[in-house]
Amino acid sequence: MITVDNVSKTFHAPHEVKALQNVSCRVAKGEVVVIIGPSGSGKSTLLRCLNRLEHADTGHIYIDGVDILDRKTNINKVRAEVGMVFQSFNLFPHKTVLENVTLAQKVVRKRSEKEAVAKAMALLQKVGIPDKASVYPDRLSGGQQQRVAIARALAMDPKVMLFDEPTSALDPEMIGEVLDVMKALAREGMTMIVVTHEMGFAREVADRVIFMDQGCIVEEGTPEHFFTNPTHSRTKLFLSQIL
């Protein structure tokens, strides 16, 4: 489904940071991969390279067989197939919840108003807030906003969902409701890549865990492997700090 081959990315401003160094990994269809690692280890950068919000300097990235770094690839088409959920929700504040979920359907997928609304309502039902459809995002709690953001991404019928610390900006009592939605999605067989510090989620849902540090993938394996006998000393150190 996703192949990352020898990808590197260096930021030059404000000072030189090697955010990704020769990263390679594969994600199969229906797999749930959780990426963990200390702050600044390049987790977000890797995720953002997957839908080209950041352009990798070298290497190749294939999504469903499409080389997304190829100049000839229509990146908008790729992005419509790759849903992304941000730490800070990034809902459109000038649109109602319903409009947030229908906008891209109409603009990108060219669906009719009726079709888009039907799809949006079904998804809002799924994430548990159909009653907030006509409300503006600033009237919602953080957890509700993040669920709308998930619905917005799902409305495009993506083949993969990328989550970048979807619960980090939430109050503790709201984390559960968002994780529940993500778990349900995983059970349905969605291919997911999740950057998170929620180790419980990783243990329960992940098929595979990837540990990153300083722009490299240090270790990857099943959750059992990770949480019972990690091999690398850096992994051990990180897990001891976070658990």
């Binding site: 839908n51 919000l53 908008n76 992005r79 790759v82 992304m84 941000f86 504040p93 891209a104 603009v107």
Partner: peptide
């Protein structure tokens, strides 16, 4: 306008002009 708005719009598959027209400029 926070750059997250542009990123959210683009990651949904909108082109730059579409994102400008529907998301950035109205705000």
């Amino acid at each position: 306008i926070h750059r997250g708005q542009m990123e959210a719009a683009r990651s949904l598959g909108m082109s730059y002009p579409q994102a400008m027209r529907h998301v950035i400029l109205p705000q």
